[in-house]
Amino acid sequence: MNFIKNYQFSLVRKSQKIVLYLFLIVLMLGLFEALILSPEDYLQGDSVRIMYVHVPSAWISLGIFSLMATLSIMVIIFKNKVFFLIAKSLAPSGFVFSLVALVTGSIWGKPTWGTWWAWDARITSMLILCIFYLMYLLAWRIFENKDYVTKITSFIAILGFINIPIIKFSVDWWSTLHQPSSVNIFSKTTIHTTMLIPLGIMTAAFALFSLLIFLMKYNTELIKIKNKGLDRL
């Protein structure tokens, strides 16, 4: 048992360095593509480049929340403590990316739409996601009892999960100021390939960043448990 835990420790710590270097390389490549190589848009000009930060952040924040919610379902059903620790460690980077998506969206909205903020379905539901992240993180500070906080945070994640499809399909269900999605699996993608490449690379870079923050946070959690002298989670 001890051997496995030490092994897990060194694995988490070593992989951090690899992920960090990989992240830096992919980020540089992505920024070079997004800021220099990719063309401007015929209508929006250079302001289209905000997309290369805005869209990946939104994707990652939605993805992380979905992952957290799935893990939380497992936690509630099977009382799995490792999944719980993983979900907890994922939350900070998801929260940051949801904030980044909102802020860059606002910065992008001013020159294109002519407003910083609109209470349309997409933007409002994204704000709700951000608040769910905040509630999840705050619950950790508020509740001391470990069993209680496990349940509360898991329910917050599961409750917020219902919001995810609302965010995704809000632009199709209702009339919104936000444009419909451009990258589609089942229908035609409406972004030109030269713009799709930097978008893909930036998404990979942000995913690696999330992984890095996750590993650091997970490592901290493991150390906390070790310091408490508990031989199991």
């Binding site: 063309p39 401007e40 848009d41 015929y42 209508l43 929006q44 289209v48 997309m51 294109t112 739409w113 002519g114 407003t115 609109a118 100021l177 444009q179 419909p180 999605s181 451009s182 409406t190 972004i191 030109h192 030269t194 713009m195």
Partner: peptide, 18 residues
């Protein structure tokens, strides 16, 4: 009293659009 532009989901470089 206020005009907002609503742009669509198409992103195209100027040369391609031309």
């Amino acid at each position: 009293e206020k005009i907002l532009a609503k742009h669509d989901e198409n992103y195209i470089p100027p040369e391609v659009k031309a």
